[in-house]
Amino acid sequence: MSTPNTTLQSAEVLILPDGKILAHNITPEMAAVLCELQPDNQGMQQRAAQTARQPDSNLRQHEHPTRN
């Protein structure tokens, strides 16, 4: 089922049974969340500090037809 008005932005997170967290396509917003989950993760702290503003919504393309 496709969801209307979805933008192209996405990130994925996998939390393993041992509590280890894997992530890819990490947006600045997701990096901030991961920092909350893992306050001792220095690498993620560094990434979260690298901020940039996503393009305004009116500059984004339209819905992603393959994303559910």
């Binding site: 990130a11 992530a23 990490i26 947006t27 560094q46 990434r47 690298q50 940039a52």
Partner: peptide, 20 residues
């Protein structure tokens, strides 16, 4: 076709933030 276009910070530190 393009399936993602966004700012990301998961690549090498010297390259981020990148618009991928």
């Amino acid at each position: 076709r393009v399936f993602s276009a966004q700012i990301e910070v998961s690549d090498e530190l010297e390259l981020i933030p990148t618009f991928a």
